[in-house]
Structures are given as C-alpha cells and as structure tokens.
Write a protein that binds this DNA or RNA. Sequence first.
RNA 1: GGGCAGGUUCCGGAGUGGCCAAACGGGGCAGACUGUAAAUCUGCUGGCUUAUGCCUUCAGUGGUUCGAAUCCACUCCUGCCCA
Length: 390
Amino acid sequence: MSPAESMDLLSRGCAEIISRRELEKKLSAGRPLRVKLGVDPTAPDIHFGHTVSLQKLRQFQDLGHEGILIIGDFTAMIGDPSGRSATRPQLTHDEVLANARTYQEQAFKVLDKAKTKVVFNGEWFRDMTFTDVIKLNSRVTLQQMLQREDFRERLDKAQPIRAHEVQYPIMQGWDSVMIRADVELGGTDQLFNIMVGRDLQKEEGQEPQVAMMLPILEGLDGTQKMSKSLGNAVGVNEAPGAMFGKVMSVSDALMARWYVLLLGREIAREAHPMAAKKELACALVERFHSAGDAAHALEEFEKRFSGRDLENAELPAFTPAVPLIDVITAAVEAYNACFGQAKSRSDVRRLVTQGSVQWRGEKVTDPKAMLDLSRPGILRLDKTRAVRVG
RNA sequence: GGGCAGGUUCCGGAGUGGCCAAACGGGGCAGACUGUAAAUCUGCUGGCUUAUGCCUUCAGUGGUUCGAAUCCACUCCUGCCCA
C-alpha cells in the first residue's frame, strides 16, 4: 500500500490528527512506526468504547506497524482526570495488576498479538527517585496543566483538584518519551495529555509523536461517554445474548454513531431501523464472539422479544428452595440465583405491584400472592429477565 | 495560622426544633404505546413478614430537649480570602 493510501485509510474515522503533514512524512519514511495506545486498567473489563482506538491500532498493525500497548499500572493509580469533575478513587497496585491481566486478554480480541508489544509504565516509574520526579515536574508549568478544561471547570466551581492529579498528563507524556512513540492514539478527550507527550519528546530531542484523536463513543444512554462507572457500557466479554440485547436497546441516533465508530461504515439508506440494528448487533457479537453466536443471539432475540415467546426461549433455570412461596420471595431468590442481583424485597414488591412480574404468562400484581412453583413454568421478572422453573 | 462559606438520600439541591424517609429537578426502574428504539403519558425510586406500624439515614462524636437534618460543644473534610 502506498503512503498516500495508508494515509487515507488511517485517517478515516479520526476526529483530529496533529498533524497530518507529520503523519504523511512518517508514513513515507517506509519504516514500521511505533504506535502507542495507553490504557489504564481502572476496571477489569474493556468495553466498546475502548475498542474504537484499539481498532485503529489494529489498522496500523495490519499495515505492518508496531503496536505498543501501554498498560498504565502507575497512571491508573492516579486516575486520568480527563473529563472528570471529581478526583477518582485511588486503586491499589494489586487491584490494578489484576485488572491489567483481563484487560490484555480482552484487548487481544481486537489487536494482533504478534504485532503488539505490551509495556507496563511501572517499568520506568517504579524506579524513579524523588529527584527524578522533581526534575520531570520542572519541565511544565502549573498554568499549562491547569489550562485544561476539566481542571478549569473544577476551579470555577470551587471543587478540589488534588496535586497528584496534575501529574497525570506529565506521566502519560513521559510514557511517549520512554517508548519513543511515533504516533499516539486516544479519544478526543486525550488531546491535552497527548500534546504534553509531544512537548516532552521535543525537549528530549525526539521527533514528536503524531496525535491521532478518535471520536468518543457514547454509551447506552446515548449522551454520555461510555464508561463502566456510568453503567452505560457494553463489555467485550459480555455473553452474546446480553451483548445483542444491549445493542438492540440503543436509540436510532446512537445506532448511527455506533455504525460509524464501531463498524466504520454508514447505515444503508433504505434499511429499516430495526433491521439495521439487528445487523449492527450481529456484527458486534460476531466480532467479539463468533458468527454462530451472532446467529444464535439473533434467533433468540426474535423468538423472545419480537415473537414474545418466552416458552421457547433460552432462560436460566431456577429451582426454588420451597415449591410453594410468595411472589416476592420467589422473585428475590430468582434474581439472586440466576442473575447475581441482590434485590431488596421492597424493590421486588414494587416490580410486582407495578405489573412487571408474571408467572406462567399471567401478571401477578398482588404482593401476597402465593406461587406454586412445583409446576413448571416461566417466571418473568422484568423487561429483560425471566427464569424457567421446573 | 486567621477570617468566611459549606458537608443532606445515586447526582444536583431545598429543608434552620415536631406536619421529615426528607420538597423540586436530573438519573434510574416499572406500566401503557412500540421496533426490548425514540418521543409521550402514568406510577415508583432507604430497609423491614405493607404496616393510619417499626427500623436505619441528613460528615463524626457527645450534649440540650418530651422531640434534632434543624439548637450547642468538640472533631474530621472541602472551597474562598488573608498570612
């Protein structure tokens, strides 16, 4: 592939590249570029949002470049302040390392393992002395660090900014120096951090990295950035059925975004939104599981939701402790046993009185109703959860 | 170190002695309607064997009071200004 063609492919889907000229120059040098992507294992799972940049890194790999996946075991302990209105809770190094393990595993669902170098940034931060830290800090000014929007906002709102948070961009920037990155990938909210990397590289006499910013993927709610802590994420490790269902529940507007950011293409103009959404869901389940899983998930979905046929759908089996119990106890046990959810009885009572719970196809709205669970049947709990008894 | 303003349920934020499990908004959940979409409408949103009932909660501890989120004392935490 010619440099111009590579350029065309690689810049597709990017929100911003700083700068295109530099990237063209690097590409035409003909050597494999060192492409950096940093991830902070603050949670054990990777979600769709992460895959946008992972996918871009994969493109680089497919063109013969080297992917350097930085596991921010040290930076994760600080927590990236980007887009944050509050200090993140601090994780211990052990927690971070545990997360890092599953992170890598999941990242390789997208990346080419053979062309990926995994580096922990603790490798260089761990051994730094306080003198080194001071020296590093003296290269930037507080004003520069505070310029960034998230900090300024907190300043305006009189919310605390802890001194260690200011270290974050400096550390991320130093990562770029240590691995001599040619390109750094990240979401648009990473602009500031990535630019600090360029500055530090220049000071160290390195050719500055190209910053490639990818759009931020909105989560299930359709407005906020996908993030596990906001509860609007779809994890790459989720079961095919759950993944499929979550994708189906997004709004049409969000579906269009996901098409572009996750599949890299537009929705077919003539497609019915429902059909388009099923296609999206299939494509994603196939990517993170398999074509067979995707077909199966689609079939189950149609059976269960379009056909409203709970009878023949795949449901977790539930064996009650006692065959004859009241609805509330039954539902609480089912939530707990089949979905690992500890619902309070009050919570379940609400579901019952509001008409969400059904036994053998009948709504049970009386919280005192007794169910004879010695008979086989389906106990529906809420919109997406139901269990099979007997 | 000094002065001032604050710390309320998931979030924002009202409440300044009983009518407070605590207004209102957001978010979330459920029902109706649907395409498990959006929009809309309705309801719910601390816990408990649902109870004009009890229990836990308004930063913490201790007090005053028949009664405290509300008053007092001390402590912890945050911001702003001054040094």
